[in-house]
Design a protein around this nucleic acid. Structure first.
Length: 207
DNA sequence: GTCGCGATTTGCT
DNA sequence: GCAAATCGCGACA
């Protein structure tokens, strides 16, 4: 993307290009790993305010994963979103009060998603945003199912979009079991930037 | 229709 | 360390 486009959107120089559907049309584990260091950009259309964030913690959920909402080929309801085009947002309500943001992965008609567990705001805020934890980051960035489920995260015009940012080398990446689930609790499908202060949980055994 | 629970967070003991 | 808050959805009647 050209420089003037970035300027137009008011994004920092290290934001890079926007990620395309091809990035997400891959196996979910690779996408979860590769999303570390990338950018999640929140754009408020009313105030034109932009909040760029670095992605620091993710988890993978796949079709043959007992913890996945589409496990066993389940379709319909909220799970139907997981079969849609890669690069779309999957936002659902958990515990009746918190939202969780995911990006749909794999080719269309193959279920899969990556959960965003923590992001780190790039620009210093007057009041630091609480973006460590899947529920907290949605609250801090005002992400809801009603407004953001199934929006295109690969469009620069979306209220939420994903950008290249800076890839993170393996030596800075930790991989552990996922947080807060009971099914398939032994799958090491959580990834995070080991030295980030925004990671939601740090006392898990590493792999 | 009723029941139970969950990819969480917070506050109190 | 533990329980409450709160609701969409699946399982079962």
């Amino acid at each position: 993307m050209d420089n003037h486009v970035l300027k137009h959107h008011g994004l920092p120089e290290n934001t890079g290009k926007i990620l395309t559907a091809a990035f997400f049309r891959r196996d979910t584990l690779s996408v979860a790993r590769d999303l570390l260091g990338r950018r999640l950009v929140r754009r408020d259309e009313e105030t034109n305010r932009i909040i760029p964030c670095q992605i620091v913690e993710t988890e993978a959920y796949t079709a043959n994963d007992p913890a996945c909402h589409a496990y066993g080929g389940r379709r319909g309801g909220r799970a139907e979103t997981l079969y849609k085009a890669p690069g779309l947002a999957y936002v659902y309500l958990i515990y009746g009060m918190y939202h969780c943001l995911n990006v749909v992965t794999e080719p269309e008609n193959v279920a899969g998603a990556v959960l965003f567990r923590a992001v780190e705001p790039i620009l210093s805020e007057d009041e630091p945003l609480k973006t460590h934890g899947p529920g907290r980051l949605c609250k801090a960035l005002d992400i809801t199912r009603d407004f953001h489920n199934e929006i295109d995260l690969t469009s620069a015009d979306s209220p939420l979009s994903l950008w290249e940012g800076e890839a993170v080398p393996d030596r800075r990446v930790a991989q552990t079991t996922r947080i807060g689930i009971t099914k398939a609790a032994d799958y090491p499908w959580r990834f995070y930037i080991a030295d980030s202060a925004y990671v939601s949980v740090k006392d898990k055994k590493k792999r």
